[in-house]
């Protein structure tokens, strides 16, 4: 019994299960192909994963606030496109970076305003902006060839070197630390959790629910913009369909990292661990000669696995609570709780 309680406490700590799983997966892949943990290979796959990790964090923050953002993938692609466009037009590096981040900001603001001002369902708005951003990138690539730029310093955003570590790592690490701080240590961050758990109660408690929700979408837009800039810097050329499907991987990563789709639970570093898990799976499959198309199946399965695991954890935790407060009123069954929870966060039409 004691063991069970300890196990349930450890496993229900946000981020612990995914880190354990990540370590196991890395060990398995290392046994299967010994080149897996060579420094070049690790650097490559983390470098490739960084833009999607940024998207994962953005989506995770939106999901913690009880929303969803499907547009991050194509917005990142479009931001990469506008960044390259600025460079092709002869802008210096920092202007181009600003253009890319601003593109993300505009889409984040648009999403947030449509959702908060008009009360439209968030995944429909972001589904629409997914198409709009993807369409804009297609149009942009037809108008301007987005490649062949040699602006000094731009490729250093990812490939530069600081203290022996690529600059892309540093940028990503700083953003992750900032976001974790924002989510856990600031009033705004606590309010994100509050509106994710129960928007009605948060409203009664004096939280401006719409403003906080708008904030989460703006953050996700900004991170998508940053991801786009890093994508452009790494690739050096932007194709028409860049970013398509990234939202799927980002959501899967967040869910794997224990971010509850019902809202109100999750953390940045756990989401990053979830994203790394997917990147590791992808790299491991590639090294073992598995066709990359299997990856979309793996991602789909990971979402399902993450949600199922999340529900089991909830049941464990609630079971623990029920045992401890035998005299008190019985809390509702976990499955029901989640359902009413979803109904509660389900916004108007």
């Amino acid at each position: 019994m004691n063991f069970q309680r300890a196990a349930s406490r450890i496993l229900s700590t946000s981020g612990v299960p995914i880190v354990i799983a990540l370590v196991i997966v890395i060990i398995v892949f290392q046994i299967m192909s010994p080149v897996f943990l060579t420094s070049g290979s690790v650097r490559d796959y983390i470098n490739n994963a960084i833009p999607i990790l940024l998207l994962t964090v953005g989506v995770a923050i939106v999901i913690v606030g009880g929303g969803i953002d499907l547009s991050v993938g194509t917005v990142a692609g479009l931001s990469a496109g506008t960044t390259m466009w600025a460079l092709v037009s002869g802008a210096p590096t920092w202007t181009a970076v600003a253009v890319g981040v601003a593109t993300g900001l505009v889409f984040g603001l648009f999403n947030g305003l449509m959702i908060t001002v008009f009360g439209i369902n968030d995944f429909i708005v972001t589904l629409a902006t997914l198409n709009i951003a993807g369409g804009l990138l297609i149009v942009l690539t037809e108008k301007v060839p987005l490649q062949g730029v040699s602006t000094p310093g731009f490729s250093d955003l990812v490939y530069g070197n600081f203290l022996g570590v690529p600059t892309g790592f540093w940028i990503a690490a700083i953003i992750f630390v900032l976001m974790q701080f924002l989510l856990i240590r600031t009033v705004f961050g606590r309010r994100i959790f509050a509106i994710g758990i129960a928007p009605g109660a948060a409203n009664v408690a004096g939280v401006n629910v719409n403003r906080v929700r708008l904030g989460t979408f703006v953050i996700s837009g900004l991170l998508a913009g940053a991801a786009g800039v890093l994508l452009a810097s790494r690739l050096g050329a932007v194709q028409a369909f860049l970013g398509n499907g990234y939202e799927f991987v980002a959501i899967a990563g967040a869910v794997l990292g224990g971010v509850s789709l019902a809202g109100g639970r999750g953390s940045v570093w756990a989401a990053v661990a979830g994203g790394l898990m997917l990147a590791t799976l992808q790299q491991g499959l590639r090294l073992n000669g598995v066709d990359p198309v299997y990856f979309s199946i793996v991602t789909g399965l990971c979402i399902v696995a993450g949600v199922v695991f999340d529900r089991r954890i909830q049941q464990l935790v609630l079971g623990g609570i029920r045992k401890r407060s035998k005299s008190g009123p019985t809390p509702p069954a976990p499955a029901k709780l989640q359902e009413t929870h979803l109904l509660g966060t389900g916004k108007q039409d």
């Binding site: 499907l70 799927f248 869910v255 789709l261 979309s296 199946i297 399965l301 399902v304 949600v307």
Partner: peptide, 10 residues
Amino acid sequence: FIATLAMLGF
């Protein structure tokens, strides 16, 4: 939408 999105990928 998550279930059907996963199904889409699958």
